[in-house]
Amino acid sequence: MRLAILTDIHANREALAAVLADLAQRQVGRIVILGDIVGYGPDPVWCTEKVMSLVQAGALCIMGNHDQAIGTADDALNITARRAINWTRPLLDDGHRAFLAGLPMTARMEDLLFVHASANAPEDWIYVTNESRALGAFRSTDARLIFCGHVHQPALMSHDLSGSVRAQRFPMGLPVPLIRSRRWLAVVGSVGQARDGVAAAGYALFDMAQNELTFRRVPYNVATTVAKVRAAGLPESLAMRLQLGA
């Protein structure tokens, strides 16, 4: 079976639609969403409802820190993120709020673990940005493969037989075999707010039979989303960020 792994949608309707159109052509058996459906972007209602319908159709969805912040006043968010959440909250109805509040922190599927941030303390929203943080995640679970988001920059880490963790370079759009002698941690790139210099939506495909992971990039109409961010009166830095993908 092939999994499509999406994360950090951030209320970006155009990006989510582009990713869903792309994976519709690729024989995906199941969709997994690693959280942060809302926040930053101008289309929280559409995105939440889209994810709710995907979950109804069998998709798996994990909670992200922005999803959690809808229900609880989270002081951990930075000022821009908090402004966007305060803008988002009145747009959502009780059904949306209940859905977001009810999302699990982690999920297991055979030897795969799905989590929004770091597996060792999912509710602390730790960014897995380097090898030593990845080591913490590897140590907290016996899962062979860990998929997370939160960072908005795709990355791949391996944990070898001697226990050392290394960041591995990978080509975009081509399958990488996740050889069984190692455990692997994949930080999936963001659907709705890329931060690695490419203004496009990111997601990943994992082929369970072939044991191969492909990081993908899908172009979407960034200008439309940027115009909506500005029309909604959201912070200008969020519009700039979408334009640059950084």
Partner: peptide, 10 residues
């Protein structure tokens, strides 16, 4: 050249 180089920094 399209796969991670496990030997790179080893």
């Amino acid at each position: 050249d399209q796969l991670p180089d496990l030997l790179a920094e080893e």
